[in-house]
Nucleic acid binder design. Structure first.
Length: 742
DNA sequence: GAGCACTGC
């Protein structure tokens, strides 16, 4: 259904006929017609996002299907669709529409559809040949979002190796990849040396200066916050009018920097004239993602006359939000990045130096409306020695579990040789396969199970989905749906900066934990969800309890969506049914065990716990947990996630009984990842067989240290699994030699 | 007894 009465976001008014791209219209259309793949490059302001889809549309491609344009972010998809529908003089949702999660504004008539890359990936799951589309345009490919990278590989395969008549397409799909100038050669080479079309941009020059206050050895955040403040104040007193954007890494730092700016700015003598602009003062505004939306909106208002605006922001200001009037950038050179460590199976959020390309992008934020200046607080030496050329793409530093399951469901059995633009390390892929095997999404041969087919339908991490499906088969999904929703939105607990408020917040949070009535963080989430939903004034309830209303609101929508998916699957598919007699609390926790048994830990020395995943890592319960301070009464626990700061903390914890997981635990050790690797590739080298054997030998030697608790079970079957895999390998090798297998 | 950038389905 088309929704036509939506408020239209304001857009700046380029005349679309004078955009740089308009001179290349004919050649562009010709290039799309002549090539299955095309790379289009051009800086911000070239008009490629808004104009190219219109050119292709007017050239008649819509007769063979929609023109789909993907964006990495929701707001971008929505605002661009608004803009293009205006230019084409139609109402949004008709000829031009958009689709993002929770908001489908497209109809039967839609010929140009803007969407998030995640949405297109979901569509491919339902329709692998994308029969509804004549052209697919992947925009912002240089951002290398996980979904865009997967789409690139899939589209490369579809278009280069069409599968005969089974595709259901009458004409071949055209693929256009749009990117900033940085990686076009690589993209073109990846897509079979396809042509690259370059469109000149429309940005202003930015002068870049190294202040040299941070050298290769300064990684302590207190240093760069202080130096960033200093550079900002120097700039304020010496440069002509124009607003400032300061890039730091996180909320607490930003608040600290703002405090320092307030203090020091007061000490500056403001009777300072530069040319004709008198700079009287400095308006200091923090900006980060978890800030209330209204407060974020203030950022966009122009400052009072004679006052300079200074926005101190996280990376949110690098791509997601554009602030007009910025002429100066202060770049700290650091960013907070979530990296997956497959060796310990943990995600670690860490502060790292940005890449040179990211630094250039930050600088570019000063040149959007006029010439600008960028002050880099670090030295040229830091730039050369500490900053990589490009940011490591998401696919190489994130957990691949969900992605691998998606690929497997799309029939990509060989997930190791899938055409990745940048190949993830093999051990990341193997770790994902292992995890999928452990939660029954794939079998020992690497094929997707019935359960895996159900799991892929849910926009959740596989472990959580497994727990939810267990609950659904036991008829208690009402317990798990809210929990799954709460765990997939941003942190719901507000941590105010002020100390007084902080104490109040903590008191309220403790009260909520007590009211939940059981020492289990998952139950606390369930209780908060239900309390808030039952309240007549949920937003006020949230304010009173220091809970993020925005986060809870999205948890409500996620819960509804998950419930709908579950209902559909129960109707459409053969859904497992199980029975269980026992208390509700036990039922709930047993469901959690089904999904999280890889995150089991056992009480160790003092207040510490020892994980049972084979690494035997020592972990502590995070002080925010309902179970904090109660370690003495605990024996076995499961946890949802890990936070590495001064210690390794587990958060969202639940006490369990050993009996509930004892039959599951052997699974953590029974499967050899090299076996899965061989299955994934359908071929193994002699070297790898040697590796398996060495690994097996090492394992036998190490036995007893980590797996003491498991030993008494006497259920391990490593030997058989490896020897089976080896036998299979030898058989295949023989067949190959005999020429039976190509 | 501590403190989590940003997206997305």
């Amino acid at each position: 259904m088309a929704k036509r009465d939506k408020p239209c976001p304001t857009v700046d008014s380029w005349d679309s006929k004078t955009l740089p791209i308009s001179h290349h219209r004919k050649e562009l259309v010709q290039a799309v017609k002549a090539n299955p793949f095309l790379v289009v490059t051009g800086e911000t302001g070239s008009g490629k996002t808004t104009q190219l889809p219109q050119y292709i549309h007017k050239a008649g491609f819509w007769k063979d299907g929609m023109i789909g344009v993907t964006q990495p972010r929701r707001v971008a998809a929505i605002t661009v669709a608004h803009r293009v529908s205006q230019e084409m003089g139609c109402s949004l949702g008709r000829e031009v529409g958009y689709q993002v999660r929770f908001d489908d504004c497209s109809s039967q008539d839609t010929a140009i559809k803007y969407m998030t890359d995640g949405c297109l990936l979901r569509e491919i799951l339902a329709d692998p040949s994308l029969t509804k589309y004549s052209v697919v345009i992947l925009d912002e490919a240089h951002e290398r979002s996980l979904n865009t990278d997967i789409l690139l590989g899939l589209l490369k395969r579809r278009v280069l190796q069409p599968r005969g008549g089974s595709s259901g397409r009458s004409t071949p799909l055209k693929v256009v990849v749009m990117s900033a100038t940085l990686e076009t050669d690589k993209l073109s080479a990846f897509l079979g040396d396809c042509p690259v079309f370059t469109i000149p941009g429309r940005t202003f020059p930015v002068v870049e200066r190294f202040c040299g206050l941070i050298g290769p050895k300064d990684t302590d955040s207190t240093v760069y916050v202080k130096e960033a403040v200093k550079v900002t104040l120097d700039l304020h007193t010496s440069e002509p009018a124009g607003d400032i954007l300061v890039f730091l890494t996180g909320q607490s730092e930003i608040e600290k920097a703002c405090d320092m700016l307030y203090e020091k700015a007061e000490a500056i003598d403001y009777r300072y004239d530069v040319q004709d602009h008198s700079v009287d003062g400095l308006l200091i505004l923090p900006l980060y993602g978890s800030m209330p939306t209204e407060q974020q909106r203030q950022i966009f208002q122009p400052p009072p006359k004679g006052v300079r605006k200074c926005v101190v922001a996280t990376n949110i200001a690098a791509t997601s939000l554009t602030i007009d009037g910025i002429r100066y950038i202060v770049d700290s050179g650091f960013v907070k990045q979530l990296n997956h460590n497959s060796r310990v199976g943990l995600d670690i959020l860490e502060v790292v130096p940005i890449s040179k390309s990211e630094a250039q992008q930050r600088a570019g934020r000063a040149g959007r409306t006029s010439a600008g200046k960028c002050f880099r607080i670090y030295s040229k030496e830091f730039w050369e020695k500490c900053m990589p050329e490009y940011t490591v793409p998401e696919i190489q530093r994130t957990s691949l579990t969900a992605v691998i399951l998606t690929l497997k469901c799309l029939g990509v059995h060989d997930v190791i040789r899938f055409p990745y633009l940048d190949r993830p390390e093999e051990r990341f892929i193997l770790a994902a396969l292992k995890q999928l095997y452990q939660c029954d999404a794939i079998d020992r041969r690497g094929h997707v199970t019935k359960l895996g087919q159900l799991m892929v339908e849910f926009p959740l991490p596989p472990g959580l989905t497994r727990a939810l499906l267990k609950a659904a088969s036991l008829g208690c999904e009402d317990l798990l749906l809210p929990v799954a929703a709460m765990l997939s939105v941003e942190n719901i607990f507000i941590r105010p900066g002020q100390q007084e408020k902080q104490q109040d917040a903590e008191r309220k949070h403790r009260q909520l934990i007590a009211e939940a009535g059981s020492c289990n963080d998952f139950t606390v989430l369930l209780s908060i969800f239900e309390k808030c939903r039952a309240s007549d004034t949920p937003s006020a309830w949230c304010r009173d309890h220091w809970i993020h209303w925005r986060a809870l609101k999205s948890a409500f929508s996620v819960e509804t969506q998950l419930r709908e998916i579950l209902l559909r699957l129960k109707q459409q598919r053969d859904f497992p049914v199980e029975k269980f007699d026992g208390s509700r609390s036990e039922l709930f926790r047993r469901c959690l065990c089904a999904g999280y048994f890889a995150n089991v830990a056992r009480r160790s020395v003092g207040r510490t716990f020892c994980t049972m995943d084979g690494h035997g890592s020592v972990v502590h319960i995070h002080p925010s947990s309902a179970l904090f301070d109660q370690e003495a009464q605990l024996d076995w626990i499961i946890f949802h996630d890990v936070l590495v700061t001064s210690r390794v903390y587990v958060r969202t914890v639940c006490p369990i009984r050993y009996e509930w997981v004892k039959d599951l635990l052997p699974k953590l050790h029974e499967v050899d990842v090299y076996e899965l690797s061989s299955v994934a590739r359908e071929e193994v080298t002699d070297e790898e067989v040697a590796k398996w054997e060495a690994k097996e030998a090492a394992k036998r030697q190490a036995e007893g240290s980590v797996e003491d608790a498991l030993k008494k079970l006497g259920k391990r079957n490593n030997e058989s699994s490896v020897s089976e895999a080896r036998a299979r390998y030898l058989q295949r090798k023989q067949e190959r030699q005999q020429g039976k297998v190509p």
